[in-house]
């Protein structure tokens, strides 16, 4: 089987200016004073790995280790400064649930809007509409404006939109921590269904138990560099040890 995701030598540089220069006046002043130099910050440095089709891949690391940046480069939101990312198939990124919701619109309108944000067609959304609402358990609220929803309801709706149409690659960033216990179980079940259907899944989570339960292989990032890449048991064991000692 081929690879669904190939990340080769990816580095991502950010210019950290202490205060952002975003007016022409300030730009000119700094240009004259020659203060236009930024501090460089490498959020990712020479990261390479590949994920086979249908695999479930976990990424662990402490805050600020570059996990989210890595997911963003894979889903095409960020373009890496160096290196190359290759992906095959439709990506459904769930970097943050509910991005693309317009809170003034109703749930029904948002299903279509959010579906189109993810690149689905009208026919697809029409066909799956009932299923989405049912999975999110929001049948009574389809014509209520989303601004009146609780955050759990928003998350449920967003999750069911993002997963109702089987993507080739599903990117999950720390979102399984939303909703109540029952819904979390439902989410995990849905992800497992997708996995058995051949979807490649990339998961970032602080819950190491979740990673151990779901993933086959794990990448451990530290300060933007690869600390370890390998079998779940092996990596998670060492990671737990390191975080406990550290």
């Amino acid at each position: 089987m081929g690879n669904a995701v190939e990340v080769s030598n990816v580095s991502m540089r950010f210019n950290m200016s202490k205060d952002k220069v975003d007016s022409i006046k300030e730009y000119m002043i700094r240009l004259v004073k020659r203060q236009l130099f930024f501090e460089e910050f490498w959020a990712l440095k020479e990261v390479s790995f590949s994920v086979e089709k249908g695999d479930v891949f976990g990424i662990v690391g402490l805050n600020g280790s570059g996990k989210s940046t890595l997911l963003k480069t894979i889903s095409g939101i960020l373009k890496p400064t160096e290196g190359r990312v290759y992906t095959e198939g439709v990506i459904s990124p769930m970097i943050e649930l509910g991005a693309g919701f317009d809170t003034d619109l109703t749930a029904r309108e948002n299903v279509f809007l959010n579906g189109s944000v993810l690149g689905f067609s009208r026919a697809q959304m029409k066909e799956k509409f009932d299923e989405i609402v049912e999975f999110a358990e929001l049948q009574e609220f389809v014509d209520v404006a989303v601004k009146n929803f609780s955050s759990g309801m928003v998350a449920r709706l967003a999750f069911s939109i993002a997963t109702v149409i089987k993507p080739d690659i599903l990117i999950v960033d720390e979102i399984l921590a939303v909703g109540d216990f029952l819904f979390q179980q439902k989410c995990e079940q849905r992800i497992q269904e997708l996995m058995s259907g051949g979807t490649t899944v990339l998961i970032v989570s602080h819950s190491i138990e979740q990673i151990e339960r779901l993933c086959h292989r794990v990448l451990w990032l530290e300060h933007g560099r690869m600390r370890m890449l390998g079998d779940t048991q092996e990596v998670c064991g060492l990671y737990k040890q390191a975080t406990r000692d550290g």
Partner: peptide, 20 residues
Amino acid sequence: LKYRFLLENLISRDLKVKYR
């Protein structure tokens, strides 16, 4: 073409919000 539906949706959203 893939994002044409998004374009339509955003336009109709703007119309709805403008005259809500």
